[in-house]
Amino acid sequence: MAGNLNPKRTSEFPKSEGGFVREVAHRVFAAEFRESNLQAKDGHDQYSPSYLLTPTGVKVNRIFVVGTLTEKEDIGTEAQFWRGRIVDPTGAFFVSAGQYQPEAAQVLAKTTPPEFIAVIGKPSTYTTKEGNVLTSIRAESLQIVDAATRDRWVVDCAKHTMERLERLKGDNPDAVKAKEHYSTNVEHYRAMVAQAIESLAK
């Protein structure tokens, strides 16, 4: 059984670094990301990637967001640890970058809000004493972008979200799991997508 964790990938691409495949960056709106609280893991191995399952049923190991940086703060005590608030049409993401993300931390340090910013990072969750789950993004890289890139992201994210909502009707395992856990209200998210797109028309 050992050495057979992912037989499909390793046998198909024997040359590609033991079957390593880069995790896809998913596009998720802030409102949906904020409501996500289900951590999942693919295998039982300590090296298997962990995911955050969102209400529309996508397993996120990497996330791509373009929004407006509205606030930033260095909350580190000894080393720098930057936290930023990035706003999209539906809400806000919290983004963090510490000493292990030096490039991203530098970008946060030198950027003056407000500014359009692209974030590529990993989702992380924190459970409060009251049992609420707070989500944030640990930034891998941050980059200042223009308004057109931000608008394009909103459209792209809307498209992906719509596709996921349509997939929720089917029996895709992630979709089924999401419906079980969140009892996803499709109308609610459909309205969220519509609101996001309508905000572009102004």
Partner: peptide, 8 residues
């Protein structure tokens, strides 16, 4: 962006 928004 505009065209795609309408479609969506």
């Amino acid at each position: 962006t505009n065209k795609k928004s309408k479609e969506l």
